[in-house]
Design a protein around this nucleic acid. Sequence first.
RNA 1: GCAGGUAUGGCGCAAUUCGGUAGACGCGGCAGUUUCAAAAACUGUUUGUUGAAGGUUCGAAUCCUUCUACCUGCACCA
Length: 864
Amino acid sequence: MNEKYFPAEIEERQQRRWADTGVFEVEVNPQKEKFYCLEMLPYPSGRIHMGHVRNYSIGDALSHFKRMQGFNVLHPMGWDAFGMPAENAAIKNNARPDIWTFENIDAMRVQLQRMGFSYDWRRDIASCTPEYYRWNQWFFIQMWKQGLVYRKNATVNWCVKCNTSLANEQAEGGFCWRHEDTPVELRELEQWFIRVTKYADELLDSLDSLEGGWPDRVITMQRNWIGRSKGAEVDFGVEGDASKKIRIFTTRIDTIYGASSVILAPEHPFIAEWIAAGQASEELKTFVEQQAAVSPEDRIAEGKEKLGVFTGHYAINPFNGENLPIWTANFVLTGYGTGAIMAVPAHDERDFEFSRKYDLPIRRVIKTADSDEADGAPVEAPFTAKDDSGVVVNSGPWSGKPVPEAIAAMTAHAEEQGFGTAQTNFKIRDWGVSRQRAWGTPIPFIHCAKCGIVPVPEEQLPVVLPVDLNFASAGAPLAEHEPFVNVTCPTCGGTARRDTDTMDTFVDSSWYYFRYTDPKNDQLPFDPKVAAYWTPVEQYIGGIEHAVLHLIYTRLWTKIMRDLGLITFGEPVKKLLTQGMVCLASYRCEEHDWLYPVEVIDGKCKFCGRTVTVGRIEKMSKSKKNTVDPDEMIKIYGADTVRLFMMFAAPPEKDLEWSEAGAEGAARFLNRVWRIIHKWHDKFDGAAAGEFSDAARALRRKTHQTIKRVTTDIGERMNFNTAVAALMELTNEIYAFDNTLKERAPVAADKFAVKEAMEALAKMLAPFTPHIAEELWAHLGHDEIVVGAAWPVFEAELAKEEELEIPVQLNGKRVVSVFVPAEATDEELKAAALADAKVQAKLEGKQIVKTIVVPKRLVNLVAK
RNA sequence: GCAGGUAUGGCGCAAUUCGGUAGACGCGGCAGUUUCAAAAACUGUUUGUUGAAGGUUCGAAUCCUUCUACCUGCACCA
């Protein structure tokens, strides 16, 4: 054993050893209980960052722990390999996105392997390979057969110079990213959608089953995102035109007597009809044109003023026959509900603001049960209590009914009379999966002039994405690739065109972890029998930024796969951990702008010597240059130290501040462990249990207490930081024991206690710092691999304290501590407390009214 | 505005499960040992009205109420 700890050397050696023995390669084994530990797969940007290191260190620690506990652990890794950066790089250099991507994957795989993570690399997948994305296409066709995939018009950002659509981030500020002088247009295109709304109820309701396993805030975010609202649709007649009915959606049909106008979205078909029929004012026409240029998001953006125009037409309230002016306004959206509302200003913030501005009547129809306000009193602010406590007033036969009752009765009335129906709406929209991009899964459909839209026959899958695309020309590379586009129709054999849209990359990540279970299957996405063993995922770990989109889409995909008969469950992930961000202070120089930490020397800019401004501690980001390169840190400290610091510096779900001093502390600890084991590793001859000294018993007690604590800290609480702290305590205890042996030679029992402590320490270090653990384990005389060894078991008898320190309180204030044997009864505790001289002095002249004894913890004397 | 989270020594953070000695562990500071000297290492040492106010209790960092600051998400969804 080398006297000094050289991380680079031992890490390389142990990684080779793991690869040679294949310890992390797993197969289905019905005899063994499985544990699927999954981390979110990275986009292959070219280099890993500290966020990846943290994410994967957490997953690796848990995987090692479960493996050592005897589980058959599936721990895979792959690449979310389609997406914009590859395409941007291709445009910039007129290069091939596939080459760029695969080079990045190779570079990042080397980095992850250098970290020593325990992946089964045989299961590595990249979503940009035809072997993978053919199943995206297969799923897409299955969904189409089920009616889950359809086409409709949707608005995209369009650049006339690029002659293609732009992603939102390419259209920031309203101008094209490549043509800064070209404003982005909104253009309607026919695009592909997946019918999420069919599963909306289930997506919402089954969130209940995730409580306890998923963070509350993720569940809450998903609930809000799905946004179910129960209400009713009601038809309003149009004055003077019996052929027209305006259908509105409301959650508060009970307020319908308070409606003072009906408001249509500017895109509502009736408005176009009125314009076409010459029944529209110039003002109305102008307004509709203006709004057409504004995206729905912008119309309702924060602080946006409510704008509207009277259409000149009137609607008829079906409940009381009242005539109401029909308006159009920017805050009514065509995509939600029916694109039309009734405005009830007395009981809705928005309607109130709008009606005030345009001087529409405001009539109170709800008040609290105990309100003594006159029904006709002017409304100063909208009353919008959501707690169902109100009572309906001013509403004809419905007056006096409590709100919930009124809603039920009035909905029933509308249904009976045939002018309304109960209706549930969702905020979540169907998933627009079309992208007018070149680096994605081709949508497997063909457009034939005769036969319409025809799926590519399944035996012809995959539709392979061409890689010899011309990114230099303006326009969409895929649409210009003639051999790709020109095909024969599978139905009639005539000439036809291939669909040139590609799929949203969220499709790739919706089911990738099912593919890991059976990554080479060329008959199906995965063998249902194999997936039945490995899935669902026991533990998923990733960033909070995926709380909504990815994690809703993958839940959706799971339910669809269940309905296709591939799996039998609806929720893919039992436990979710959203790890915190890796943060660092940012530095800024007046002249040289943001500086990397290494460019700041003693608070001064390395280039000009100016004093730098220290920004707040925030998420590491390239733009602020407050980043640290994992590779650099590994070079200096080794992978084990970097991993250990990541696990120790904060609980996993909290943000973590990278600290060089902290990393040094982690390195110091590993050195300390190395040194003490080096000192002892060849001195265990004759070690044997026997007569243990007090100090040796204390060491054994600490060993077993530590095993207990680390086991629960990792296994139950996932507080890796405190588990590491416990290992540091154990190390300190070994040093303390070693110190007691300065005066005397160790006997057999001492050696036994030290060996026991060191072996436990080496094993428990394995989840955090597997390389050094492996090395130490070998030096302690073991031939087998430690990461494949059994997790240590604690013995309760040995972990038990022999003597307890019991605080004695007088009226809740601590006076003194007394020492009692661990098995002392409550009576003995009390007696020991009363026997103490200091306690007796304090009690002088007082009467004990009450004595509280908390078994084995404390005595509190209440005295007057 | 709504929802959720956080607030504890100089710093990062323990203790909160189920109320029971506030401080484990690391960083930093200080001193000693070692050294020609320094680094490293080892040994020792260092701090508080637990964000504020009130309440419940024999006892509150922990439970309840109100407030403040910061962070995150959502934000005209009818």
